[in-house]
Design a protein around this nucleic acid. Structure first.
Lengths: 140, 140
DNA sequence: CAGTATCCAGATCGATACTG
DNA sequence: CAGTATCGATCTGGATACTG
């Protein structure tokens, strides 16, 4: 008798997607790991109001103009943030998180929290691994 | 009066981490997006028993030997899979997922499912974005 | 069998300079 | 102000060949 697990449910969901949709799903998940994506989204979420490009640039410490522009474009393309341009001089552009962007953050948060809570276990695993590696190298 | 949101909780958790721990947390989350990591883990999880290197290579369609080796090493280093070598000729090496690896998958699964379920909304957002872009370009 | 070593193409990211 | 354009260092991943 085959054991039914949640992997089967997840697999069934995956199989129900077209190839395009599967690719897109991967893309979205992959983007979560792009260096700045989550940081930018959480800055916009915490702000609770639209932010100008330069405010985001300040708050996302260490990001370059180029990388921020790219990150914001991707987020806009996926409907996770909005971009509003004002025909003024000097130009003003405001970015805000969308409802689906907030949903996304809400779904990422439990995972992130779990990893953060488990960080000690990962550290320990690395110590064990690196120690074992060192002794292998010592014996050469 | 300041609105208390779950972002504050998450932020508090983040702030409680040392810089090392924060870096490690990022690294773990980042790894989730490495092309093969989740696929390898789910193959090992679904197998329910240790798998040889070549079995994994077969089941993770499209992965190169080099990338698979690297992925498995990282997973081993973080304690997410185990590697067991047998002193035989020809050599045999078996990989298996660990309890913490299973936990990780369990925490990733809801996020993945949500993205998969929301894929239609992302597709729609892209269509809107790309259409708007095209008309901007047309008007040049 | 299960890797490691080497080479190479493409992507990424920061720094810098320039523009509407 | 909010970008774009360009360059170079770095990283990634695949293909191939070799090894204990």
């Amino acid at each position: 008798m085959k054991k039914i697990t949640k992997w089967d449910e997840a697999a069934a969901l995956c199989d129900s997607l077209s190839e395009d949709q599967d690719t897109l799903t991967r893309e979205i998940v992959t983007r979560l790991a792009d260096k700045w994506t989550l940081w930018v989204m959480s800055v916009l979420a915490e702000a609770g109001e639209p932010l100008r490009f330069s405010r985001v640039l300040e708050q996302v410490e260490g990001v370059s103009q180029k990388s921020l522009t790219k990150t914001l474009r991707q987020l806009e393309r996926d409907g996770l943030v909005t971009r509003k341009m004002f025909a003024e001089v000097p130009p003003r552009v405001e970015y805000a998180i969308t409802p689906i962007g907030v949903e996304m953050l809400e779904h990422v948060e439990p995972l992130w929290s779990w990893v953060a809570k488990s960080v000690g276990r990962f550290q320990q695993a690395r110590i064990v691994f690196d120690t074992a590696k060192d002794s292998r190298e010592d014996s050469l």
